[in-house]
Simulated assay, not measured.
Amino acid sequence: MLYICPLCQSPLTEDLQGYACEKRHRFDRAKEGYVNLLPVQHKGSKDPGDSPEMLQARRQFLDEGHYQPLRDQVAKLLDEHLPTASTAAIVDLGCGEGYYTSAWVNDNREVYGVDVSKFAIKSAAKRYPKIQFSVASGYRLPFASASLSAIIRIYAPSKVEELMRTLCPGGILITVTPAARHLYQFKALIYQDVQLHDEKEEALEGFECLVEQRLHYPLTLTASSATQLLQMTPFAWRASENVWQYLADSKSFSCETDFKITVWRKAE
Score class of each variant (00 low, 15 high):
V116H: 11
S117V: 02
F119A: 11
A120P: 01
I121L: 02
I121A: 02
K122W: 01
S123E: 04
A125C: 13
K126A: 05
R127P: 00
R127M: 03
R127G: 01
Y128Q: 12
P129T: 12
I131A: 11
Q132W: 08
S137V: 04
G138W: 13
G138I: 04
R140L: 14
L141P: 03
F143K: 06
A144C: 10
S147R: 06
L148A: 02
A150R: 02
I151C: 09
R153M: 15
R153P: 00
I154M: 12
Y155G: 07
Y155R: 12
Y155K: 06
A156E: 01
K159I: 12
V160E: 09
E161C: 05
E162I: 03
L163A: 12
M164C: 12
R165D: 15
R165W: 13
R165F: 14
C168R: 13
P169M: 14
G170Q: 11
I174N: 00
P178E: 03
A179L: 11
R181E: 12
K187H: 01
A188N: 02
L189W: 08
L189M: 14
L189E: 06
Q192S: 10
Q192F: 05
D193V: 13
E199W: 08
E199T: 15
K200G: 09
E202C: 02
E205M: 11
E205C: 10
E208W: 07
E208V: 07
C209R: 10
L210Y: 01
V211D: 03
R214M: 11
R214Q: 15
R214D: 04
L215F: 06
L215T: 10
H216M: 14
H216C: 15
H216I: 14
Y217P: 09
Y217G: 05
P218M: 04
L219H: 05
L219C: 05
L219A: 06
L219M: 09
L221Y: 03
T222G: 01
T222F: 00
S224I: 15
S225H: 08
S225F: 05
L230T: 00
Q231H: 05
M232T: 14
T233L: 00
P234C: 08
F235L: 10
A236Q: 00
R238K: 08
R238D: 11
A239F: 04
E241K: 08
W244D: 05
Q245V: 08
L247W: 15
L247D: 09
D249N: 14
D249M: 11
S250M: 15
